[in-house]
């Protein structure tokens, strides 16, 4: 039918447009490397690469929990320490959930996890206006199997740094 042909053509045109679209937020999201900030060398203690590798940019959570583990707490304390010494960076804390849960609940759960990290950072003296939080719920898993080994990695809060250009 004529109508169908038209619909198919429209779809094709849109797909083409999507392919050439330079893309907005999320298109090249590699889950924690920051947007457009130079990672630098991990040998440089004030680099994002150092933060990710030596300090640790993420903490993991138990099923349906948003309380920091003792290990998680130590990582966030180290993050706070680093952020206090490297005032040129701002951070977005991304909260995530595994796939065992409904979409809306997982968004809210990811927000709790991100907030748990934010609160500890602020309590250690990091200025609250340097930290924002966002939840991706179950939308951005890093591990894709449907086993606890993957779920454990996906239940995370990642501190994503950006060089503060305005500062």
């Amino acid at each position: 039918m004529k109508l169908w042909t038209k619909a198919v053509l429209t779809v094709a045109a849109l797909s083409l447009a999507a392919c050439t679209d330079p893309g907005g937020f999320g298109n090249d999201d590699d889950f924690g490397a920051g947007n457009g900030s130079d990672l630098g060398s991990s040998a440089d203690p004030s680099s994002i690469a150092y933060f990710q590798e030596a300090v640790g940019d993420r903490v993991l959570f138990l099923v349906d929990q948003s309380t920091l583990s003792e290990q998680g707490r130590l990582v966030v304390l180290a993050q706070a320490n680093w952020l206090m010494q490297n005032a040129d960076y701002v951070a977005v804390i991304e909260g995530h959930a595994d796939e065992q849960g409904t979409r809306e609940y997982n968004l809210a759960l990811g927000a709790r996890r991100a907030s748990a990290v934010q609160e500890l950072l602020v309590s250690q003296g990091v200025a609250s206006n340097r930290i924002r939080t966002v939840s991706y719920g179950k939308e951005r898993p890093i591990e894709i199997c449907s086993e606890e080994s993957c779920y454990a990695q996906n239940r995370r809060a990642v501190t994503v740094l950006t060089a503060n250009l305005s500062g």
């Binding site: 619909a7 779809v11 999507a18 679209d21 893309g23 937020f25 999320g26 939308e139």
Partner: peptide
Amino acid sequence: LQYLTDSSSI
């Protein structure tokens, strides 16, 4: 079928 947004954002 008609698409209402592109796929640049979730």
